[in-house]
């Protein structure tokens, strides 16, 4: 069965080049990609993840609001009892924030320059577990 991925942009950031390119690449890697567009609230992302019953969730944030937004998305998932779904993050994320984000429950972080191939590969590995 194809892997189902939700690609979402939380917050107000409008830089969606990366999210769209990743969505297209995952589609071409044989996944079913649900793309929700800009300005998603944490609760709407969690709702989408729940209703679509996706295998994994990718968030894209370039505005610097990642610490707060990731926490809110993860909390919203917990409220809906879907905290077992893995969440990865892409965007401009300073290295010093990695530890905090990972301890929050973010499974992987892809910074600028990460290859599409690697992202697809990592998703397959994470979902398999």
């Amino acid at each position: 069965m194809p892997i189902k991925v939700l690609v979402a942009k939380p917050g107000l950031d409008g830089h969606d080049r990366g999210a769209k390119v990743v969505a297209m690449a995952l589609r071409d890697a044989g996944m079913e990609v649900i793309y929700t567009g800009l300005r998603q609230t944490p609760s709407s992302i969690a709702d989408a993840a729940l209703q679509e019953d996706v295998d994994i969730i990718g968030l894209s944030i370039l505005s610097g609001a990642h610490n707060r937004l990731c926490k809110k998305v993860l909390d919203a998932m917990k409220e809906r009892n879907i905290e077992n779904k893995p969440v990865f993050l892409g965007g401009i994320i300073p290295e010093e924030d990695y530890e905090n984000l990972k301890s929050m429950g973010i499974v992987d972080i892809f910074g600028p320059g990460t290859s599409l191939e690697l992202i697809a590969k990592r998703i397959k590995e994470i979902v398999k577990k």
């Binding site: 950031d13 300005r39 609230t41 505005s63 609001a65 990642h66 610490n67």
Partner: peptide
């Protein structure tokens, strides 16, 4: 505003 959470003063 709720929509502003985490974004204030960032970019």
């Amino acid at each position: 505003d709720e929509m502003s959470e985490g974004e204030v003063g960032k970019v």
